[in-house]
Design a binder for these strands. Structure first.
Length: 481
RNA sequence: GGCCCCAUCGUCUAGAGGCCUAGGACACAUCCCUUUCACGGAUGGUGCAGGGGUUCGAAUCCCCUUGGGGCUACCA
């Protein structure tokens, strides 16, 4: 049996960036060894699970390109199976009914705390006689099912990331509940049954699960099941050095999406949290899969760094084909409410040129919204732009520019800049700066922005140059008074 | 409280006893490119938590201290 790994999120929230990272490592490991990547939805907690979240999780994984080979499997559809295994454990005496109430358990913990003892279940109902059980039932108590944890015993496993991990069963908190009073299976139990049934070869998950692993190993043993290999990844930390949580702003994958991050960059960044590539830092998911191995995974947590993610996003944006970039930015512009004429699957030349120009040097697609306004929206001026128009030489400059464009209905991209600069002399200007700056402000309303010549060419194709020049000239003349 | 894990520039990391006067990337600063803002190029500063060992030699091995993190449910 080859490599079979799984990502097993619970649909109690949108796909979290930490889950996405775990999914990625599972995916990389599977792909690096030609194994299968499986999706399982852990929805045993009926209270908190929502199908909308399941949808979000699947969409998120798909968006990232982490396509799964099997599934999604749903734990909620396997309840009979869990019951069956619970019964098996019960019949062999490896599990038993515990009738303790929530209050009794609470009480126990409070007392232990007061005495400075570690909190744990004291296994008080481990060996109840049938008579005692009947008495509890007569009281109307609904029992949970607990799995016997032998003490003392040492559980050891060779973790692919953590190395050899040793755990004393006495530190496990006593016999564990595997089924709630209402019959619902609990995580630590369901996960073992599932991984067993689905023949998972490697369990790759966050290291907040190390403490669960000895319990699960005991369960595998009790079921006489093959124990998978374990790899516990260090967690992702926030700027404060704590586990990344919903309180940290953007943590759902959809947040990153909305911010203008692209999957290629996110994958690249996530892969480098606690894993280091043997070579270049910028890579595709395919390349990462070829390079991936657990011996380059660190045991220490990594802090989430927006600066680096943004930079990486810019790098991957640059790697996109003109067509892909155009599609991406066009969607952003449409979402921003800009009226973009004649959009079709094959982008018109001018749109591709616009995307190339405005996509230059940005690190997130959302940054193109602001520059997009310059091309797609009617002309308006910033205070800085008005300051420039108010300069005394501007009416002259703009008149000369207007004349130039009237005389040159077709523009030569090769010589345009030179031709514009040549306008300085006749106007008595020492430098061409005011000409270019004037044209920039006249066309865009602001002194800063994308490269001027390509921008002019694009607006010219849209028949926008003369109109804007005219409008700005009028403005400049009025500002002189 | 108990158990477990971690510890190299601000951040992500390379480093598996001599190749380290510790390398790279992000961020930062300066300069160059440029009509502008970016991009790009160049240069620069900043780090082995502390203390003990082991060794001819330690960022690398061991111990302690300190700091940080995780877990400790009839959640997952």
């Amino acid at each position: 049996m080859g490599v079979r790994v799984r990502i097993a999120p619970s649909p109690t929230g949108n796909l979290h960036i930490g889950t996405a990272r775990t999914a990625l490592f599972n995916y990389l490991f599977a792909r690096s060894l030609g194994g299968k990547f499986i999706l399982r939805i852990e929805d045993t907690d009926q209270e908190r699970s929502r199908t909308a979240y399941t949808r979000n999780i699947i969409q998120g994984l798909t968006w990232l390109g982490l396509d799964f080979d099997e599934g999604p499997y749903y734990q909620s559809q396997r309840l009979d199976r869990y019951r069956q295994v619970t019964d098996q454990l019960l019949s062999t005496g490896q599990a038993y009914y515990c009738f303790c109430s929530a209050e009794e358990l609470d009480d126990l913990r409070t007392k232990q705390k007061a005495l400075g003892l570690p909190t744990r279940y004291d296994n008080r109902h481990r060996d109840l006689t049938p008579e005692q059980q009947a008495a509890f039932r007569a009281e109307g108590r609904q029992p949970v099912v607990r799995f016997r944890i032998p003490e003392p015993r040492t559980v050891v496993w060779e973790d692919l990331v953590q190395g050899q991990v040793t755990w004393q069963t006495a530190d496990l908190g006593g016999d564990m509940v595997i089924a709630k009073a209402d019959g619902q299976p609990l995580y630590n139990f369901a996960v073992v049954v599932d991984d067993w049934d689905m023949q998972i070869s490697h369990v790759i998950r966050g290291d907040d699960h190390v403490g669960n692993t000895p319990k699960q190993i005991l369960l595998y043993e009790a079921l006489d099941a093959v124990i998978p290999q374990f790899a516990h990844l260090p967690l992702i930390h926030n700027a404060q050095g704590k586990k990344l949580s919903k309180r940290d702003g953007a943590t759902a994958l959809t947040d990153f999406q909305a911010l203008g991050l692209i999957p290629e960059a996110l994958i690249n960044y996530l892969a480098m949290l606690s894993w280091s590539p043997p070579g270049a830092e910028i890579f595709s998911v395919t390349e990462a899969a070829q390079l991936f191995s657990f011996d380059r995974v660190s045991k220490s947590p990594a802090r989430f760094d927006w600066d680096k993610l943004n930079w990486l996003n810019g790098q991957h944006l640059k790697l996109l084909s003109p067509a892909d970039l155009t599609t991406l930015l066009t969607n952003v512009w449409i979402q921003a409410g800009y009226a973009i004429p004649e959009v079709s699957p094959d982008h018109p030349e001018w749109l591709t040129q616009t995307a190339q120009l405005l996509g230059e040097g940005i690190s997130r697609t959302q940054e193109a919204v602001r520059s997009g306004r310059l091309v797609f929206e009617p002309l308006s001026y910033t205070p800085e732009g008005l300051d420039i128009l108010a300069k005394p030489e501007m009416p002259g400059v703009l008149s000369a520019l207007k004349l130039f464009f009237q005389e040159h209905p077709t523009l030569d991209p090769e010589t345009l800049k030179h031709d514009l600069q040549a306008l300085a002399g006749p106007l008595g200007l020492k430098k061409a700066g005011p000409i270019l700056q004037g044209l920039r402000v006249a066309l865009t309303g602001q002194p800063k922005g994308p490269e001027l010549v390509p921008l002019t060419l694009i607006l010219h194709q849209q028949n926008q140059v003369l109109g804007r020049l005219d409008q700005s000239l009028g403005f400049a003349q009025r500002l002189q008074k």
